[in-house]
Design a protein around this nucleic acid. Structure first.
Lengths: 290, 290
DNA sequence: GATACCTGTCTACCTTATAAGACATTTCCC
DNA sequence: GGGAAATGTCTTATAAGGTAGACAGGTATC
C-alpha cells in the first residue's frame, strides 16, 4: 500500500481529479484536457500535473494513450459495502462474502473521561477495552474500539470476542440490550488505524460512535468505529411524512424477512439506476456486524 | 483563514492532532507526549512535529509550557451541530442560531452520467445545477451540489434558491416529493470545497448523496452534500427489535411536536452524559435544511 | 540540589518538489 | 501526406520541505 506520497501541489490536483473521477463528474471513457491545459488551468508546471496523473494511472483510474490523450477508465466506481442505518451488513452472507475479525488488543483500562461519562460510570471504574478489525474477503474495512464496563466484560473471554459479535456476547450474558444512540462523523486516519486498515496516514474515515444502554439506562457498551469509506458506507431509504409546513424525512423501517431475496439497487450516488419500484428495501439479515 | 500552508507531513500531523483534540480524544488539560515522542511515533523529525504544534498553538488549541510540556487547552471541544438521520437540523431555530445560505453557482448543465442515471434522465437531458454553502452564525458548515431536471428547475428562480430550501421550492411547484435514498461516506476536501468551507485542503469531510423521487419513481433531485464534521454530524437513536437470533437495531421514529422543548443530550461520543430517561428524542422542526 | 525531561532556538545538510524548457514519438484528422 | 496535438522522456535550475544534531533554559521530581 501507500505508493509514494506525492508532495503538496501534485497531491492537490491528484485529489481533485480523483474526486471528480470517482463521483462521476469526469465521465468514464471521456478524455481529460491535455496535460498542458491542466497545468495552465491550475497554474502549475506540466511536471507537477504529470505526477498527479501518474498516480491516477497507478490507481487504475485513468488510461494514458500517447499521442491520443488521457482517458477516464471505465468501470472504476468501486462500490463500497453497504450497511443500512442500523449498521447491519446485509447481503454479505447471501453474497457469499467471507467476513473475518482480527482482535488487536484486549485489556482492562481506565477509560478516557469521555467514554466514562457517556457510559455513566463511577469515577475510577474501569472498562474492558477491545480493539478489533473487521475484514471482508480478507480486506480490512473497519477498526472498532469498544469499551464495556469491567463487571460486564468479565462475563466473556478474549477468545469469545475474537469469534463472536459483542452484542451477541452481551445478550448471551443476560444483559438486556435495548437502546442506543449513535452519531456519524468523519476523521483522518492516525498511524495505528492507517496501519490496521491498510491506508496512508491522513486518509479520510467514516467514524461512528455508539453508546448502548440496558433498559435501566445503564451504559453497557461504548463503540467507536472507523470505516474505510471506499469499502463501507451507510445507506438508508427515506419517505416524506408529516403535514404541509412540517414535512420531513423519515427512515423506512425495514421488515426482517426470512427467505432469501436478492435485492438489486445501487447505493452510492454514482451509477444508481432509476427505481421502478418503491424504494423500500427488504433485506434479510442473519447476523449483526459492526 | 488558512494561515501559511504547511507542507505535506507537517500538515498531516497538524490535521491529525487537531482532530484528536477537537473530538475530545485528547482530553482538555492533558499533556501531549513530548515532541520527540511524537516525532518517533509518526516517524518524523522533531522540526516537522514542531511546525504542526506551532500551528496548533496558533489556533489556540494547545498551550506550550517550556520545560513542562504541551497541553491541550480547555474549552475547545466545539460541539458540532446535530442533525438526526433524516438530516434535519433540529434545535437551530429554538437555539436562536442564525442560518444562512450562499449561492455559489447556478447554471443549466449536462449532468455527469452518474447523476443522470440516478435521476433516471433521458440521454441528453439537462439539469439545473446549483452549488450552495450553508452557514450557521456566519460559519460555513456544508457545501451542497444539487442537480434538478431542467423542466423542474425552471419553476423557480435563482433568487428563490438563494433564500428558500430546495425541497420547499419543489413542493411549492406542485412536485410531489415522496421518497429518497441516501448514503453517507467520507472524503477529503478539495481546493474549492476547502475554500468555501474555510478549511485546509485535505481536511476530512462527511459526504452525503441523496436522490429524491416523486411518487411515480421519477428522479426529482440529486444532492451531493459535504459537511465539516467539526460543525455537523448525524445523530440517531436506536432501539433493539426483533426475535432472539434475529435481533437488530431500528431507528426511533421521532414524532413531530409543536411546542418548544429543549432537549439536553450530548451527541458526539465525547462528553455524553448518562441518560436517565429513555433515549427517545423529541424534537420540533420548523424547516428542513440540508 | 541533582537529574531527567521538556520546550525554544539555531545551524548545517540533504532530499525532494516544482518550474521551464527541449525534443522524440504516437495518434488523429483534414 | 502533413500538421496539430497529445503523451513520453530528458535536461537544468531553483525553491522548499525535511532531517539531524547541538545547545540553552525552564520545570518538575526525587
Amino acid at each position: 500500500m501507500a505508493d509514494a506520497v506525492e508532495p503538496l501541489k501534485a497531491r492537490r490536483i491528484y485529489l481533485l481529479l480523483r474526486e471528480r473521477i470517482l463521483n462521476g463528474e469526469l465521465e468514464p471513457g471521456s478524455r481529460l484536457p491535455g496535460e498542458l491545459s491542466i497545468a495552465a488551468e491550475y497554474g502549475l508546471s506540466r511536471v507537477t500535473v504529470r505526477r498527479a496523473l501518474d498516480t491516477l494511472a497507478n490507481d487504475g483510474l485513468i488510461d494514458r494513450r500517447p499521442g491520443s490523450g488521457t482517458f477516464v477508465r471505465e468501470g472504476n466506481s468501486v462500490q463500497p459495502i453497504v450497511a443500512d442505518l442500523s449498521n447491519v451488513l446485509s447481503h454479505l452472507v447471501e453474497m457469499g462474502r467471507r467476513t473475518g475479525v482480527r482482535l488487536l488488543s484486549f485489556a482492562y483500562v481506565n477509560p478516557p473521561e469521555s467514554v466514562a461519562a457517556s457510559l455513566g460510570l463511577e469515577p475510577g471504574e474501569r472498562t474492558q477495552r477491545s480493539i478489533r478489525v473487521r475484514l471482508i474477503d480478507g480486506a480490512p474495512f473497519s477498526y472498532l474500539v469498544t469499551h464495556v464496563p469491567e463487571r460486564i466484560g468479565v462475563t466473556y473471554s478474549e477468545a469469545d470476542l475474537a469469534s463472536m459479535p459483542l452484542l451477541g456476547l452481551l445478550e448471551r450474558s443476560g444483559i438486556m440490550v435495548e437502546e442506543a444512540s449513535q452519531s456519524i462523523g468523519a476523521t483522518l486516519a492516525g498511524p495505528d488505524v492507517a496501519e490496521a486498515l491498510g491506508l496512508e496516514i491522513g486518509s479520510p474515515l467514516l467514524s461512528l460512535t455508539r453508546v448502548v444502554w440496558d433498559p435501566s439506562g445503564q451504559g453497557v457498551e461504548h463503540l467507536h468505529a472507523l470505516y474505510r469509506p471506499d469499502r463501507y458506507s451507510f445507506h438508508m431509504d427515506l419517505v416524506r411524512t408529516g403535514a404541509v409546513g412540517a414535512r420531513r424525512w423519515n427512515p423506512v423501517v425495514k421488515p426482517v424477512i426470512a427467505g432469501p431475496e436478492t435485492h438489486k439497487r445501487k447505493t452510492k450516488g454514482p451509477e444508481s439506476s432509476k427505481p421502478k419500484s418503491r424504494p423500500v428495501r427488504v433485506s434479510n439479515q442473519r447476523r449483526t456486524s459492526t
